[in-house]
Write a protein that binds this DNA or RNA. Sequence first.
DNA 1: TAAACATCTGAGCATATCTTCATAGGTTAA
DNA 2: TTAACCTATGAAGATATGCTCAGATGTTTA
Lengths: 103, 103
Amino acid sequence: MSQYTSPPILDEHTAAHVAELFRAFSDTSRVRIMSALVTGETNVSALAKIVGVSESAVSHHMRGLRQMRLVTARREGREVFYRVDDEHIIALFQQGVKHIQDE
Amino acid sequence: MSQYTSPPILDEHTAAHVAELFRAFSDTSRVRIMSALVTGETNVSALAKIVGVSESAVSHHMRGLRQMRLVTARREGREVFYRVDDEHIIALFQQGVKHIQDE
DNA sequence: TAAACATCTGAGCATATCTTCATAGGTTAA
DNA sequence: TTAACCTATGAAGATATGCTCAGATGTTTA
C-alpha cells in the first residue's frame, strides 16, 4: 500500500542560498535602490541622490547585489550604470512590494 | 506637450516595510521553518526537530513571523501549531526557492 | 495538588550588517 | 601631465540579529 510522505524540508545548503537571496532585499536602502533600478538603468551618483545615501554606501550595496548577480554593471566613461536584467528577480521584488502596498 | 517621468522610487516608510518582509526570509533557520510550514501545519517541537535547532530558537522565530502576520498559531492542548495562511506569502517564498533551484 | 510536558520570554554573548571616513583606481578634459 | 570627476575599497564604529541558558507560563495527567 502506498503511503504519503510530505516533501522533505529544504536542506541546509539550499536554505542558506534562499536566505541569502531574500537578504539582498532586506535593507531599506537596497529596497529603494532596487525600486529605482526597476524603472531603468541608473548610475551610482544618481542612485545616491535618489535614495539619499552616500555614493560610497551605494557602491558597497552594488558590490553585494552584483556578486549575487541581481544586477549587472555597464561602464560608460567614468560613470557605471547598473540595471536589473533578470525578469524573475524583478517579479520577486515587485511581489514583495505589492504585498506591502495591498495590506 | 506631455512628458514622461519615471515613477518615483519607494518612499522611506514603504521601503522599510518591504525590507522587513524580505528580512523575514533572510535567515537559514527561518527559511527551513517556512519550507516545513508550507507543507502543512506543524508544532514547535516538531519544527525544532525537523530544522535542527532548539525549541527556544524556534519559538523566538515564530514570534517574529507571527507579529508580521506571516504565520498563524492554533493551540491544541499544550501544543501550538503554526501554519502559513496567506497564499501570496507562500507564492513569494516559493518564488525565491525556485530562483535558487533553477540556477 | 503535584508532576510532566510544551511553549514562551528576557538577558547576555558572539557574530553580522550598515554606514562613514579616508583613500585608491580609473576616465576625461584642460 | 595635471586636475577634476566618478566609482570602488578597506577599516572602524554603532546597531541589529540569532542563539543559548535559565526560568516563567499554560496545559494535561496521575
